[in-house]
């Protein structure tokens, strides 16, 4: 317990610092109210608005742990959302709609996984194929227009509330918990990390790397499908041109802010979703602070740069060096004093 807390401590401290910074510009940021049987306030908005990136980050963490990357998740969001909106507006019930949307995500994941694990294409290239072509697939489903629907049961996934919390927030927290437990209470997590550290060695050690890789990309597709459902339900319409546009980059950023190495190996899902919340806090904070739009991306880039510099391994090393040095000096002076006394 303590060890996992110390793993995510840097992310929690960063999140706290960003929240304090935003509160300095917009004092009402930390206020949470309770109206019409739901919690309201900027922080609740962050939890809800950050849901798509947090969901994507869960799957992306696993993919990156295997030394891969999935550029297609934003597009898979658009495909799943388009299929969901099409299914619900053509009169299929909620359950078939969800099954179709989630199935589409899994299928996209299977495609990516096969390209990477069976055919052996570099992950960045393999997933780039779906990233560029997938939006066209989504547009074919929506026929190039914004496919709207009014079914309240599907809309619940975007704007409904559960125990006063927005449903998207509940969804990502639950999914993060489930995936973490699945990875850490079984050997799955270790196996995924083993592939990332050295795929051939892990294969020689008896890990079925091929099946596991496909499963990991399917998990990323599943997370993207959930994100697509949330985003589509949120605006009650599938916008194939814009749903999930560039969100794969935010998801990768969340994983990186979460301290996970792009070279694979050790991973922490908790840290990644906190990374997603850091990004969303910055986004929401910029909106609330009321700066002109021209500054949005500049401020975001500046803050992200600071966070990454502070977290950089080189800096951490010199920080450790300073800490060790001061401890050694303390010990030396202690010894010296002891000697003096005796």
């Amino acid at each position: 317990m303590f060890r996992s807390l110390s793993r995510i401590a840097p992310q929690l401290i960063t999140l706290g610092a960003i929240v304090l910074l935003v509160t300095a510009f917009f004092p009402d940021f930390i206020l949470i109210g309770y109206e019409r049987e739901r919690l309201v306030g900027p922080i609740i908005d962050v939890l809800k608005r950050g849901a798509p990136v947090a969901l994507l980050a869960i799957g992306m963490t696993l993919v990156i742990a295997t030394r891969g990357i999935d550029l297609s998740v934003g597009t898979v969001m658009a495909i799943s959302g388009a299929i969901g909106a099409w299914a619900i507006s053509s009169g299929l019930g909620l359950a078939p709609t969800l099954a179709l949307a989630i199935g589409a995500g899994l299928l996209c994941g299977l495609w990516n996984g096969c390209l990477v694990a069976v055919i052996g294409i570099q992950p960045i290239v393999a997933t780039l194929i779906l990233m560029t072509s997938g939006r066209g697939i989504a547009q074919l489903i929506t026929e190039g227009r914004i496919l709207t629907f009014s079914d309240p049961s599907f809309a619940f996934f975007g704007s409904g509330t559960l125990f006063g919390m927005p449903f998207p927030a509940v969804l990502w927290v639950l999914l993060a918990l489930v995936v973490t437990l699945l990875m850490r209470r079984t050997a799955l997590g270790i196996l995924v990390e083993a592939i990332g550290v050295n795929r051939s060695a892990s294969a020689l050690a008896g890990v079925n790397a091929r099946v596991l890789l496909i499963a990991v990309y399917m998990a990323a597709g599943l997370c993207a499908a959930f994100a697509g459902i949330v985003a589509t339900a949120d605006i009650r319409g599938a916008d194939a041109n814009n749903t999930g546009l560039w969100l794969e980059l935010d998801a990768i950023l969340a994983v990186v802010i979460g301290g996970n190495s792009l070279l694979g190996g050790r991973f922490s899902i908790a840290a990644s979703v906190i990374g997603a919340m850091i990004i969303q806090t910055i986004d929401t904070g910029i909106l609330l602070a009321g700066f002109p739009s021209e500054y949005n991306l500049v401020i975001k880039a500046g803050l992200v740069l600071i966070i990454l510099v502070v977290q950089s391994p080189n800096l951490a090393q010199s920080w450790r060096f300073v800490k060790d040095e001061s401890r050694r000096r303390r010990e030396r002076s202690y010894e010296a004093r002891k000697e003096l006394r005796s």
Binding site: D45, I146, A231, D234, I235, D239, N242, T243, L287, L288
Partner: peptide, 11 residues
């Protein structure tokens, strides 16, 4: 975009 409009309006 619709998503953009909704998110910014919330803020």
């Amino acid at each position: 975009t619709r998503t953009g409009g909704k998110e910014v309006m919330e803020s």
